[in-house]
Design a protein around this nucleic acid. Structure first.
Lengths: 133, 133
DNA sequence: TTTTTATGTCAGAAAACCTAACATAAATTT
DNA sequence: AAATTTATGTTAGGTTTTCTGACATAAAAA
């Protein structure tokens, strides 16, 4: 017999559920790093009544992505620009975007030039697999 | 384009993620109630290094079920017995279980006699729907 | 070489959580 | 009916966690 109260697969991705200590474990980032990324507006975790940061699963996803970008040599400004571009996908491929477009090319070019042939093959977010099934 | 870091649907149900404040919101139980149920071994939430309770999604499910049982008039002892019986499903329907079985019947009988015709129709855990999609 | 970036570390304060104790209404037992 | 038990409320004192802000620093960029 199955029971009714199974919320596991229904939790909203945007619900602020997790304290920073748990997010540190899930992402292997320090509190300092997480706060720094928020300071630079890469994430906007919710706050408890007492001003403690509360993170959603989407926030965790975002942090893992930020970590990945940084590991790839992209800097905070670059990540922010990528996010900005993601936010307006409808203007994409229409009129040229003056400076914005050029900036993106520069970012991408720099990324290629900076890649340092790290070649971290295959295993993406490998360590996290121990947390998942 | 989809991104790789989507942990949302892969979080282990048993991972201790949530502080008691969040569990209070999710279940609409007080901290006192949650701690009392733990004291009576209906749940066993994990602990942080500093001894703070950390709850898994399974724990939340369990608490919602406990709440439901209590609302139905079943007391803590009854819930515990139900859990015990659930833990040995293989003995079920075989040899008579002496006292255990009789105790269960008493519980069920008492539940029926105590039902007070509350008749809380249909809507199960209704309020929680606002938390889910 | 100077500046910027990303992160470490520390301090003091506030919030969240802990256990333990006492209080109590409602239900149960005697 | 009186005494006890159950499930929960409340309060107090102590510990853990998190906060902001400041200063420090290695590596990268200008």
């Amino acid at each position: 017999m199955k029971w009714v109260n199974n919320m596991t697969h229904r939790v909203r991705r945007t619900m602020p559920l997790l304290p920073i200590s748990i997010v540190m474990q899930l992402t292997e980032l320090t509190a300092r790093q997480i706060r720094y990324y928020e300071e630079h507006e890469l994430i906007s975790p919710a706050r408890s009544e007492g001003n403690k940061r509360m993170f959603s699963l989407n926030d965790v996803d975002a942090l893992l992505e930020i970590k990945d970008f940084l590991d790839q040599g992209i800097n905070i400004a670059g990540i922010k620009k990528i996010y900005d571009l993601r936010a307006q996908p409808e203007i994409e491929k229409t009129a040229p975007q003056t400076i914005t477009d050029a900036e993106l090319r520069k970012i991408l070019r720099d990324e290629i030039l900076n890649s340092k042939s790290l070649d971290r093959g295959g295993i993406r977010q490998g360590d996290l697999s121990r947390f998942f099934k």
